[in-house]
Simulated assay, not measured.
Amino acid sequence: MKSCTAHARRHLAATFLAFCAVTAHAQPSAVPDPNTWLNAAQQAVQLIDQNRAGELWEGGSAEMKKRVAKKDFVASVKKLRGVDAVTAREWVAIERSQLAARPDVPAGQYVNVRFRAALGKRAVAELVTFRQEADGGWRWMGYLVQ
């Protein structure tokens, strides 16, 4: 049983990293369809659910990696999520936006996938963000729990 779980985890991580690689080489004007974003965001939150935030960070955008060290990202996710397991999750919205530069966010095109989730008895909103990189490809940029 443990080997099946380990295999599934490796497959999930490989699938997510493959998404990052595919979107990183997309044409500059190409924006994957909403189902692609939803699938990628679900894979991202599954990695977080499995306490594998470090693997998620590895597939992240260069801009995110400049701003947040891997150990700090992992610690932040643990703090945001707490110890409660996810008991329910559903997607709520997929939004695309163009942002101007701010001190905490670089200018660029973004796609946000919002989820409504239950962590134990606590209702939360989760936000998974992707950003278009300088080469025109898309990468995972952030995760937030509200």
Results as ranks from 00 to 15, higher is better:
Met1Leu: 07
Met1His: 05
Lys2Trp: 08
Thr5Asn: 05
Ala6Val: 14
His7Leu: 08
Ala8Thr: 07
Arg10Met: 04
Arg10Ala: 13
His11Ala: 07
His11Arg: 01
Leu12Cys: 02
Leu12Pro: 01
Ala14Met: 02
Phe19Val: 11
Phe19Asn: 08
Phe19Gly: 06
Cys20Ile: 06
Val22Tyr: 10
Val22Asn: 10
Thr23His: 14
Thr23Lys: 13
His25Leu: 13
His25Val: 09
Ala26His: 13
Ala26Arg: 12
Gln27Trp: 03
Val31Asn: 04
Pro32His: 07
Asp33Met: 10
Asn35Val: 15
Trp37Ala: 13
Trp37Gln: 11
Asn39Met: 11
Ala41Trp: 08
Gln42Gly: 09
Leu47Lys: 06
Ile48Pro: 04
Glu55Met: 10
Leu56Asn: 02
Glu58Gln: 09
Glu58Leu: 09
Gly60Leu: 03
Ala62Trp: 09
Glu63Lys: 04
Met64Thr: 03
Phe73Ser: 01
Val74Gln: 02
Ala75Arg: 05
Ser76Phe: 03
Lys78Phe: 08
Arg81Leu: 11
Arg81Pro: 05
Val86Pro: 09
Arg89Gln: 02
Arg89Lys: 07
Glu90Trp: 02
Trp91Asp: 12
Trp91Thr: 15
Trp91Asn: 14
Ile94Thr: 15
Ile94Trp: 14
Arg96Thr: 06
Arg96Trp: 05
Gln98Pro: 02
Arg102His: 10
Gln109Val: 05
Val113Gly: 11
Ala117Pro: 01
Ala117His: 04
Ala117Asn: 03
Gly120Pro: 02
Ala123His: 11
Ala123Cys: 12
Val124Phe: 07
Glu126Asn: 03
Val128His: 03
Phe130Arg: 01
Arg131Tyr: 00
Arg131Pro: 01
Gln132His: 09
Ala134Ile: 00
Asp135Arg: 02
Gly137Leu: 03
Trp138Asp: 04
Trp140Cys: 09
Gly142Lys: 00
Tyr143Ala: 03
Leu144Lys: 00
Val145Ala: 00
Gln146Val: 06
